[in-house]
Amino acid sequence: MDLKQEIGSRVKAARKMRGMTQAALAEAIDMSFETVSNLERGKTAPNFNTLSDIAAALDVELKFFFDYEPNNTSKLRSRLISELSATTLEVDDDKLALIADLAKVVARR
């Protein structure tokens, strides 16, 4: 998965975790629905200002869009990592610690 696709996957995961539609995100960042759709599908890459606007609209840090495993990561693995990362944005520290503990147990199996 290339960087455009990875960023798009991250945008989509964070948007869905916020319960926001593509149209609502587009309105929040003053862009068209098609622009958001193209970004999420990795067809186009956002410039830094747009990405900053998206991060603000989705209440995530800008680094969220770049924290990924490049190279030989499968599309499924990349999507699941994005979804897991977006999910952790919604939980408090105690629940996050529990998620980390569960992940460690599952990884050992």
Rank of each mutant, 00 (worst) to 15 (best):
V36P: 02
L51H: 03
V60M: 01
I7L: 06
K95S: 13
M1S: 06
A57W: 00
K16A: 10
F48E: 13
A97T: 09
K16Q: 14
L96G: 08
A23R: 12
E40T: 04
L96P: 01
M31T: 13
I54S: 03
A86I: 12
K12P: 03
E90S: 14
L76G: 08
L62N: 01
K43L: 11
M20V: 05
A56R: 13
N72C: 09
L84C: 09
I99F: 10
L84T: 15
D92R: 00
K63H: 11
I81S: 10
A24D: 14
T73S: 03
L102V: 08
K12G: 00
A56C: 07
K12S: 07
V105P: 05
K95E: 09
V106C: 05
T35G: 06
R15H: 01
V91S: 02
E40A: 03
N72D: 15
S32K: 05
A100V: 10
N71W: 07
R41K: 15
M17R: 15
E61S: 15
L25I: 14
V106E: 08
S74H: 01
D53W: 00
I54C: 05
N49P: 00
S37A: 10
K16T: 09
A55H: 00
K4L: 08
R18W: 00
N72E: 15
A97F: 01
R18T: 08
M31G: 06
S52H: 07
L98G: 11
A86E: 04
L89H: 02
R79S: 08
D93N: 08
I99T: 07
A107F: 02
F65D: 05
E69N: 12
F65I: 12
K4P: 15
S85D: 03
M17F: 13
S74W: 00
S37T: 14
L58T: 13
L96F: 10
L98V: 12
D92A: 02
S9T: 13
I7E: 02
D101P: 00
M17S: 15
E83V: 05
V105L: 08
K75P: 09
L25M: 10
P46M: 01
F48W: 11
L58G: 07
T21D: 03
D53M: 05
R109D: 14
M1V: 06
G19V: 02
G42Q: 13
S82P: 00
